[in-house]
């Protein structure tokens, strides 16, 4: 078992494996998104307080979850890359960052589009919104730092340190609605407490979150394949692969 894992931890063997996995995750994402959108728009009832505007929840909350979750996974890969000097782990961290940044951006913008009709403001400097904005800057900082250092192994180490220091922000975002009195509404789902929302609303949110999750895996695998090709351009396996014409 251990030997097998080490086998796949080299770019050369992971490249074709990732290529085989991408269509599966992409199809799963598409099917889950269609099911999630159907539940979100056709089945979930109108909210008695917020009317139809609440339907933004079906994209806002999954995007916000993914923004935090991807950061934790990214920092985890970065830590493994730093600790074991494993180049594929560092590449995985690098591959996750842009997708995480996109979900953070979407969480912020859809939140703004929800805030305007409900609160009357596009933006307020409260704890939840501010810490999520800092998350976006952490992603962008990680990407900028990584690309500003020419030596990829040094770039990996510098990026990993930034990612690990920034991880402290994730619990701050998550608990911000508890720790501070914020305009942002409390969490919709609490562990150990019965959800305060209709089952169909919950189902729509979970389906959309799963769709985003599968999409993230597919996108990260696509990106890590690009990174492998770009970094290992002079390696024999890339030469053989590109001349053979197979992707």
């Amino acid at each position: 078992m251990i030997i097998k894992w080490f086998k796949y931890s080299s770019p050369q063997t992971f490249y074709p494996l990732a290529g085989k996995m991408i269509p599966w995750f992409a199809w799963l994402a598409a099917i889950l998104a269609i099911a999630g959108l159907y539940v979100s728009f056709a089945i979930a009832p109108t909210d008695f307080q917020q009317g139809e505007a609440y339907r933004i929840i079906f994209v806002h909350v999954p995007a916000a979850w993914m923004s935090m979750f991807i950061y934790i996974v990214m920092a985890g890969w970065a830590a493994i890359g730093l600790g074991l000097n494993a180049r594929l782990s560092a590449m995985m961290a690098q591959a996750l960052a842009p997708t995480g940044a996109i979900f953070t951006f979407l969480a912020l913008v859809t939140g703004s589009l929800w805030g305007k009709p409900m609160w009357g403001a596009w933006w307020v400097w409260d704890a939840r919104l501010t810490s999520e904005l800092i998350l976006l800057f952490l992603y962008l900082g990680f990407m900028a730092l990584q690309s500003s250092i020419d030596d990829p192994r040094r770039a990996d180490r510098a990026g990993a340190l930034l990612a690990l220091v920034g991880v402290v922000n994730v619990p701050i975002i998550y608990f911000s609605v508890k720790w501070w009195n914020t305009l942002h509404q409390g969490s919709t789902i609490n562990m150990g407490v019965a959800p305060k929302m209709a089952m169909t609303m919950l189902l729509g949110m979970l389906l959309m979150a799963l769709a985003f999750w599968m999409y993230t895996i597919a996108a990260a695998l696509m990106r890590v394949r690009c990174i492998m090709l770009e970094r290992e351009r002079s390696a024999d396996w890339v030469k053989e692969l590109s001349v053979g014409g197979k992707s």
Partner: peptide, 29 residues
């Protein structure tokens, strides 16, 4: 229910971001 702009902007932008990311990744590879 009168919130068309806010709801459709949210979902439309999400779809655009996904499509853009996939196309950019294809081009990059």
């Amino acid at each position: 229910g009168g919130y068309a702009f806010y709801v459709w902007f949210s979902f439309g932008l999400t779809a655009l971001c996904v499509i853009w990311e996939v196309l950019a990744l294809r081009k990059r590879s």
